[in-house]
């Protein structure tokens, strides 16, 4: 699927540029994006290095296990395939918490670490059920404080920058619940297909 999308975007783009004479822009975009990708990876690396270091301390100090213990019933429902006391639970919870508070750059390292733990569990190059669920939660972005949007609204002199917070939280709850339901639906469909 991703192979198709990837090729489709580039092929259609180049074909369109050939017809509409935008090849120069395409050329420029290719090379500026290469730089951009390196810059994004570099700044992401800084965040990853810092947060994974800090989270390792939290793990050793028993903070992640404590967090996992409190929320285990909820996580167990959303991720039924993760065994109790598995370190993935602590990282998934940190990822969800960071997302809720709008700490996008703290959420990513913890989500990636959780993915690694899940990969250890599944040991295959195919996305496991828990991985897809974790992805669904992250793509629907469960936010309580949309920091970036608030910053933009303040910059353009909103009379009430936080007026959208309630609506955003409501929308994000709906999209997260929908993501979980859609995820479940596809899981049961896969299961049914497997049993013929």
């Amino acid at each position: 699927m991703v192979n198709l999308i990837w090729a489709f975007l580039a092929v259609v783009g180049i074909a369109y540029a050939a017809i509409n004479g935008t090849m120069k822009e395409v050329n420029e975009a290719i090379f500026s994006t290469l730089d951009e990708a390196i810059m994004i990876t570099l700044s992401l690396a800084g965040v990853l290095i810092f947060w994974l270091g800090l989270m390792k301390i939290a793990e050793e100090a028993g903070l992640l296990a404590g967090l996992a213990k409190i929320f285990r019933p909820i996580v167990k429902r959303i991720f039924p395939e993760i065994p109790d006391d598995h370190p993935a639970i602590g990282y998934i919870l940190s990822n969800m918490t960071a997302n809720m508070f709008g700490l996008g750059n703290a959420a990513t390292p913890m989500g990636l670490k959780a993915m690694r733990e899940l990969k250890k569990l599944s040991g295959s190059d195919k996305a496991s059920r828990s991985m897809i669920t974790l992805l669904a939660i992250n793509t629907s972005s469960l936010t309580l404080i949309p920091t970036t949007v608030l910053a933009i609204r303040m910059k353009y002199d909103s009379a009430d920058p936080t007026s959208i917070v309630g609506a955003t939280v409501l929308a994000t709850i709906i999209s997260t619940v929908a993501a979980l339901l859609i995820d479940r639906y596809f899981y049961y469909r896969r299961k049914r297909a497997m049993h013929g």
Partner: peptide
């Protein structure tokens, strides 16, 4: 999807993209 699956080398992503895009639509 690119970042999360890329970081752990997942090649077959199953229904992940469909789930994500449908959830976006609902959102």
């Amino acid at each position: 999807i690119t970042v999360y699956f890329g970081a752990v080398g997942i090649k077959r992503m199953g229904d992940a993209l469909k789930v994500g895009l449908l959830a976006d639509l609902v959102g």
